[in-house]
Amino acid sequence: MESHGLTYDGCNFFRQRLVLSTLSGKRVKIKNIRSKDDNPGLRDFEASFIRLLDKVTNGSRIEINQTGTVLFYQPGLLYGGAVEHDCNTQRSIGYYLEALLMLAPFMKMSLKATLRGVTNDPIDPTVDLLKSSALPVMKRFGIDGEGFDLKVVKRGMAPGGGGEVVFTCPVRRTIKPVQLADPGKIKRIRGVAYSVRVSPQMANRIVESARGVLNQFLPDIYIYTDHMKGPNSGKSPGFGLTIVAETLNGSFLSAEMSSTPQGQGDPVLPEDLGRNCAKLLLEEIHRGGCVDSSNQSLALLLMTLGQQDVSKVLLGPLSPYTSCSRSRCRSLQRRKVKVATRS
């Protein structure tokens, strides 16, 4: 493998490193990827992510050694256009979509990405969460307009998958600075309770138990039920809930829970899932901030890539994923970005 720009060790922040490499145009070399594990090297879902990056760029050069423990990545031009990708079912579509959200506004052509795989699982952000909380964050930075949408065509629960989503995003040459210092009070709560290959009553039971908790605090709550049938219901049974609290100042704080994948542990009752998800939302509201914990890193990246004007965002306690990115915070300070955290 030839000379490289930046060298990293281990598999931590794998997506972040490749996304920032693609945006900056800098070559990276990642070595010792699980080199001490019994099963060393890249996992199938990471290889699938690399293939997706290759599809949205033009001229990328990717080299992987025989054991999969060393990756060399020289990013090409962020091209975009129409892309189709079958995501590995070890991780949900949200794993791949989080990276696409960061890359899509800066492509040469408007992106239309059709992703197939697991739409909802307990590990990664679901497509419902990204649609209801990540897209509004991007709109605050001026990434909106006709063609900015995330549509769930088919649902696919873990482990079988079979879901399909379409993400479209227009090109934005500049990111506008933001001043988000006051989240404001909660004015309403919206959400979706979904169920596939189980009784439609499951979703109704989830809604009833979630409302039992949330109605003690707020009357304006609407959670609609989404029960997909036939070929649109994927390959595995399951159910779940995504709820979002909207504030008077236009901030969105979200929480979600999905049922245990088939054959992977103790099953969960829909009543328990609804109650626990409602409590998660209350915890997210208590944490405060203008951006919820699942979208902190997206907001920080957009602040970094914005123009030289000062951006300000108030965040709650940093999530582990965000707080471990120390180098990013140091670069933010150089780019006139102010991040306040609420303890």
Results as ranks from 00 to 15, higher is better:
Val313Tyr: 01
Glu256Lys: 04
Asn295Glu: 08
Thr304Met: 08
Ser293Gln: 11
Arg155Lys: 14
Thr22Ile: 07
Val28His: 01
Gly306Leu: 00
Val70Asn: 08
Leu135Val: 12
Lys154Val: 10
Gln16Trp: 04
Arg334Asp: 06
Asn65Gln: 00
Lys139His: 10
Lys55Phe: 05
Lys29Met: 13
Ser323Thr: 10
Ser325Arg: 15
Thr57Val: 09
Gly156Ser: 06
Tyr224Asp: 11
Gln307Lys: 13
Ser311Ile: 05
Gly306His: 01
Thr242Cys: 15
Phe252Tyr: 14
Gly162Trp: 00
Val165Lys: 02
Arg328Cys: 12
Ile189Ala: 08
Gln296Ser: 06
Met303Tyr: 06
Leu97Pro: 03
Val339Ala: 13
Leu218Gln: 00
Met257Asn: 14
Thr57Gln: 07
Val127Gln: 02
Gly117Phe: 02
Asp9Glu: 12
Arg190Ser: 14
Asn39Ser: 14
Ser35Glu: 06
Asp124Ser: 11
Ser21Ala: 15
Ser209Ile: 03
Gly147Phe: 01
Asn249Asp: 05
Ser133Asp: 00
Leu77Cys: 12
Lys26Thr: 13
Glu284Phe: 05
Tyr321Ile: 07
Leu253Ile: 15
Ile143Phe: 08
Phe13Gly: 04
Gly10Arg: 01
Ile175Thr: 11
Pro159Gln: 02
Asp182Met: 11
Thr174Leu: 10
Phe13Thr: 12
Gly274Val: 08
Gly160Arg: 03
Asp292Cys: 15
Arg205Gly: 05
Tyr96Asp: 06
Gln66His: 10
Pro122Leu: 00
Ile50Lys: 08
Leu300Pro: 04
Glu98Tyr: 00
Gly250Glu: 01
Gln262Met: 12
Pro177Met: 05
Cys324Ile: 02
Glu246Asn: 09
Leu78Gln: 05
Gly117Val: 08
Arg51Thr: 12
Arg51Met: 13
Ile64Pro: 03
Ala193Met: 02
Pro159Gly: 08
Asn295Lys: 09
Val165Ser: 04
Asp292Glu: 11
Ile243Arg: 00
Thr322Glu: 04
Phe106Ser: 13
Val244Tyr: 00
Met138Phe: 06
Ala340Pro: 00
Gln66Gly: 13
Val19His: 05
Ile62Val: 15
Tyr321Gly: 11
Pro320Phe: 05
Pro125Trp: 00
Tyr73Ile: 01
Ser195Glu: 09
Lys55Met: 09
